[in-house]
Design a binder for these strands. Structure first.
Lengths: 215, 215
DNA sequence: CAAAATTAATCAAACGATTGATTAGTCAAA
DNA sequence: TTTGACTAATCAATCGTTTGATTAATTTTG
């Protein structure tokens, strides 16, 4: 049945996502993935063409849903520019902490200088999401609610970089925060609201022109 | 000669550092390393025992050169707290860009779920630098020059995270900035001062209480 | 409708290439 | 001649991928 086929592909993607996240692209062998998924090794190539194709399929699936979320926020005319950015921050913090294994995987692979085709494809997919945030900040520039001399690329680096830092270096972050951030309860009840509140205040202080004459 | 041996080992470590940074631990083969270093493959095992031993040796060497950098800034009583932080920012931006290969290597290995002994070692070293910045911010809290309700751990995450983001994801950063950030001239003349200026203004907006009555 | 033809899905086995590591031996210096 | 630096050749293991065969499902045909 067609439904079964889709479920099977999805199941492979589920397993591959976890194995890639645990071992990295090179460290995760096709044998391990197919073994843990309970399918024949050749199925990976049959469905996804290659190991790289499988990786990209995992990646694309993860990133696509977030993209539509960002786009909906950006196109919402009922909220202010700053309100949009706040929504982005909330969603991004919420999301990246849920998917932190995957986030680590992305950073590890993109930070490689070689393997250009893979890196380029990942970058291309990530760039779409970056562009959505960029658009919002630019909107704040044109309607005067943000300071005119802000550095947009740097702001983006701060938004993504701050969260990546916490997620990618959990041992170090735990020492800095003074609590094991991998503790799920702490993460949910303490860290997430804290990161959200901090990011909003930080960016507001840098971006938002309180003396703006627009609405 | 003994001198030659040390030079040769050092040369291998130089090459290994770069190759590990480019390909990751798994992706970097011993053949590639020995090939680029112009030595026989067996020399790696001869000198360092194993691939992991070589990897550890790369770290040990780098770590040794890291130890004595920022501590003088914190103990300097002739500048304001904010001045100290500015100095730290300048120093880090300057430094991380020089050592960006190594920085990438650190981030990739720390983000791994495996290889705990190595991760702990790296975390310990990084924590020394983190602590120096933490001390400075706390000083600003006690002398009233910084707002009293700031989130110190998050500020640290922003300082390191923003920089790491730019360095670790050069392809993406280049697209965001609109110029290849691996271009050395651009990096030196444009990006470095830009990152420094941005970080200072961002943190000043968040941290510095302009109505402070201290000096 | 039923038989035949075609396609899709799955499998065990094996491919050539590459991995990290080791061996046995060379060679120069002491 | 003995020792330590060094090399070419090779090891078994594992890598991602491909193969040819088999089964299941679907479509076409008579």
């Amino acid at each position: 049945m067609d439904k079964d086929k889709i479920d099977k592909k999805d199941h492979i993607l589920d397993v591959a996502e976890r194995v890639f996240a645990d071992y990295g692209f090179d460290g995760a062998s096709t044998r391990t993935i197919s073994g843990e998924a309970g399918v024949n090794m050749a199925m990976l190539n049959y469905y996804f063409g290659s190991k790289e194709g499988l990786f990209l399929a995992v990646f694309e699936r993860k990133i696509a849903s977030f993209r539509t979320l960002l786009q909906n926020i950006g196109n919402d005319d009922t909220i202010t520019t700053w309100g949009k950015l706040e929504k982005c921050i909330d969603n991004y913090v919420e999301r990246i902490i849920v998917n932190n294994c995957f986030q680590k995987l992305i950073n590890r692979e993109v930070s490689m200088n070689k393997r250009w085709t893979l890196t380029d494809k990942i970058t291309e997919i990530l760039m779409v999401n970056v562009y959505e945030i960029k658009k919002i900040i630019e909107e704040g520039l044109t309607n005067g609610s943000f300071y005119s001399d802000i550095d947009i690329p740097m702001v983006i680096a701060t938004i993504f970089g701050t969260k990546n830092y916490i997620i990618n270096m959990p041992q170090l972050s735990s020492l800095i925060v003074g609590h094991d951030i991998r503790d799920e309860k702490f993460m949910e009840e303490e860290l997430k609201p804290r990161v959200k509140a901090y990011m909003k205040r930080l960016l507001k202080a840098y971006l938002v022109n309180e003396n703006d004459n627009s609405k």
